[in-house]
Write a protein that binds this DNA or RNA. Sequence first.
DNA 1: GTACCTGCAAACAATTTGCACTAAG
DNA 2: CTTAGTGCAAATTGTTTGCAGGTAC
Lengths: 135, 135
Amino acid sequence: MPTNRQTKQRTLIMQALQGRLDHPTAEQLHRELSAEYPHLGLSTVYRNLELLVQRGELATAPSPDGVVHFDPNLTEHAHFYCTRCKRLLDLPLPEQLTEQITLRPGQRVEAVQLLLSGQCEECGSKTDPQAESQS
Amino acid sequence: MPTNRQTKQRTLIMQALQGRLDHPTAEQLHRELSAEYPHLGLSTVYRNLELLVQRGELATAPSPDGVVHFDPNLTEHAHFYCTRCKRLLDLPLPEQLTEQITLRPGQRVEAVQLLLSGQCEECGSKTDPQAESQS
DNA sequence: GTACCTGCAAACAATTTGCACTAAG
DNA sequence: CTTAGTGCAAATTGTTTGCAGGTAC
């Protein structure tokens, strides 16, 4: 089943992901694209994101908020989740992280996810315990 | 609001978590406990788990399967997720992991989650691409 | 023309919430 | 007694699926 037709929607979604630095959710992306393409269905966004992930052209990013975030940055990296403003930021991954982990015999590692959480600069400098809005 | 009454249900739930090595979900726990306490409500389980997490007596464990897993092991450790049998196993965390990460100025780390995924020994030795059942 | 893809609505799964009632202190 | 806690059902949220019609190739 050749999943390869270049539809307007697919093109739109792929373009929207190009060179992006943040980690949008499907709903976020849908909301943004709806502006210029009002009839775009949310399920179309989901379906295309899933496709891109399967193809390995897109990664999913971990997030403690329970929603799936998509990460156009395919290089290995860690994430920092700000518990205040709920943003997910990129961080470099330590060198040879995998080698430092004592695995049990027979375990084969295929992927590593490192997620730090805390407060980012902007939020840490505020004393107000109220959360900040994202974007 | 003193959240402190020792109800049968709460005691039951806390006991079930004691010294446990796996990472049950709320539904799993509910299913298990329902056996000896048939009227236990799922929401009661959720409410009590949430309470324990807030109190810091229980941690949540990351899992790529989209469901929240609860981790009675409060010492810092990493996890290994087997993509075949879907089990979540404990691993030691590398020493000074946090120090190895180049944070951006101002970022304050409060928690670290390290999740490896791949195949565990049992699954890796099988050639069958079919998933294994989890206990 | 064919079958992949889309939009929409309905289905689903995990979790939360509202509320009348029960029981811990 | 008082009110935190419970069970149950209904509501929410994120995501998936079924299907009839649209459209890329």
